Amino acid sequence: MSKFEDLLAQKGALLADGATGTNLFDMGLVSGDAPELWNTDEPEKIKALHQSFVDAGSDIILTNTFGCNRHRLKLHNAEGRVRELNMAGVALAREVAATVDREVLIGGSIGPTGELFQPLGALSYEDGVAAFKEQMAGLVEGGADILWVETMSAVEEMKAAAEAAQDFDLPLVITASFDTAGKTMMGLSPTGLGDLQSQFACTPVAIGSNCGVGASDLLAAIIDITEAYPEAIVVAKANCGIPQIRGDEVVYTGTPELMAKYTHKALDAGARIIGGCCGTSPVHLAAMRAALDNHTAGLRPTLDQVIAEIGPLVSPPNKAADAARAEDGEGGGRRRGRRRG
């Protein structure tokens, strides 16, 4: 087994980390700048973020490489630094993981290319595979334990990432963001993600959901996945409560107590890797660690119970629109280039 599967077998459930972007903004990152450049420009700040998550009890920390592919980096004239920045991201995480006398795994974070695939956009499938393969090569060379593909929306992009991953001897995790009426921006449902497992060139060891619009919405997606695929290893990495716009800022409403409740609900829903995305601080994560360690298995939650305890759905399913799309044979939609955490 891989180190990931071995640690999961030992512990039963694992705690991932919290937000990257929102925490780096608190550390001085300016909106519009590439967080990945901090792997070389501000390495001590990146290590401090990783250390805060390890100290809070994370079993898995994700590298600061979410947008570290040639297409996103070209926006910052850094497309020639893919290998360097990915290797540096892994090295910083590995340095922090070595500070504790327990196993902390390094997930090499891989986000979307930021481009639309043909025929909606200009990026060919082959070019998408090449971009992911280039990034993964840097992560593997740096010493990552897991190839962690996250915040995905389009089926063809997930397939391209999985095809790239088959060239490397590391476990693959794929999570999608179900942020549009219970589906991804490109129209994929949570059960649709489960259906895709058999179509990927490299079968993921785990699937699930991250980011999105709120913890309740993410739990709704997890409930759907685990009901349809009870044997799957499922990741739940929700935003910290519900995002609210206050002036020029997006503020996440989740308290440590709420994120502890979310952890219990995610475990009872069948998730085995729990973490936080946008807005999740080390304080939230510490509460989640305590919840995971002290969890007593309960009944599988219903959506009504999730809403009652965690809060309302931000983007509830649009059944009328789903029916219309099914009748017309449509499943698409426009896509936005969004960052994790």
Rank of each mutant, 00 (worst) to 15 (best):
Y229A: 03
D26M: 12
M259F: 07
A19P: 04
G111H: 06
Q244V: 14
C211A: 10
I310H: 08
L92K: 01
D217W: 03
F117Q: 12
E126A: 14
L120S: 12
A181M: 09
E257D: 15
E231T: 14
A162H: 05
A220E: 12
E95T: 10
R339M: 09
A286D: 11
Q197L: 10
D145L: 05
P256T: 09
N64C: 13
G332I: 05
G80C: 01
A260P: 05
G142V: 01
G333Y: 00
V250G: 11
A201T: 08
A238H: 13
N39V: 04
R246T: 12
A326T: 10
E327R: 10
E126D: 15
N86V: 02
P43I: 09
A164S: 11
I174E: 03
Q305P: 02
G89K: 02
G12H: 11
A88Y: 01
D322K: 00
G111L: 07
P256W: 01
T302I: 00
C202V: 11
G241V: 04
N23D: 13
F168T: 03
V96R: 05
N23I: 04
G12C: 09
G143Y: 00
E42G: 02
C278A: 10
L258V: 01
I242S: 06
I225L: 03
H76R: 14
V100A: 09
T175L: 00
I273N: 13
A130D: 15
V306R: 05
D268G: 01
C278V: 09
A232H: 10
A206F: 08
C240L: 05
L37C: 07
H50L: 08
R72I: 06
A91W: 04
R81P: 04
I174K: 02
V173I: 15
E327G: 08
L73G: 07
A176H: 02
A122K: 15
E141P: 00
N239A: 13
M1Q: 14
G333H: 02
V104T: 09
T226F: 10
L292A: 08
I242G: 06
A215C: 12
L62C: 14
F4M: 00
D304F: 00
G121Q: 12
K47E: 15
D224C: 07
A181L: 04
L193S: 03
P204R: 11
A16F: 11
P204D: 15
V205Y: 07
G247W: 10
G32C: 05
V100R: 12
A181V: 02
N77A: 14
A201V: 03
L62M: 13
L92I: 05
M136A: 10
L62N: 15
P43K: 10
E115N: 09
T113Y: 01
V155Q: 08
A308V: 07
L193E: 04
G276T: 09
V54W: 02
V251W: 14
S124G: 13
G21N: 15
T253D: 14
K319G: 06
A324V: 05
T302A: 07
D217L: 03
G298Y: 02
L267H: 02
R94M: 08
F132L: 02
A287K: 03
A160S: 13
R70K: 15
G121D: 13
Q199F: 04
D169F: 04
I60P: 05
K183C: 08
L62D: 14
E79T: 01
A266C: 09
A236F: 10
I146S: 10
E327V: 05
P230D: 09
D6L: 13
D101L: 06
V314D: 09
P301H: 00
A201R: 12
K265R: 12
F66H: 07
T113L: 14
